[in-house]
Amino acid sequence: MKFMLIVHHNEEAFEKMDQAQRQQLLAESIELTHQLHASGQYVHASPLQPAATSVIVRAREGKPLVTDGPFIETREQIAGYFLIDARDLHEAIRIAARVPGARIGTVEVRPLIEIKGLPDTREA
């Protein structure tokens, strides 16, 4: 069963942290991906560029409409994600609690809908 762990944080507060602290969080996050890989729970993970880089695309009546991110007024932004394989919600919660971002922001745990017919890119 796959879960997406979506890390939300306050970008402004994050950017005010000193460089060493941010490096530390990143290093811990990378370390976590290796631990998850070793236990067979890792699928994918990545941090995201700040929300200011975000572009919103709508396709209406065949025409793409591109705008700036509509959610700048919300305080919490998506900082990155971990895609994991867990037995059930409790295992996913235990992993979410280990995500360094959980200490400064929040981690949303979302189960994936498992559908058939997608290209299989994951190595066995």
Binding site: M1, R87, D88, L89, H90, A92, V109, P111
Partner: peptide, 8 residues
């Protein structure tokens, strides 16, 4: 069911 809340 969907979030796999375990029965335990």
């Amino acid at each position: 069911r969907d979030a796999r809340i375990p029965y335990e």
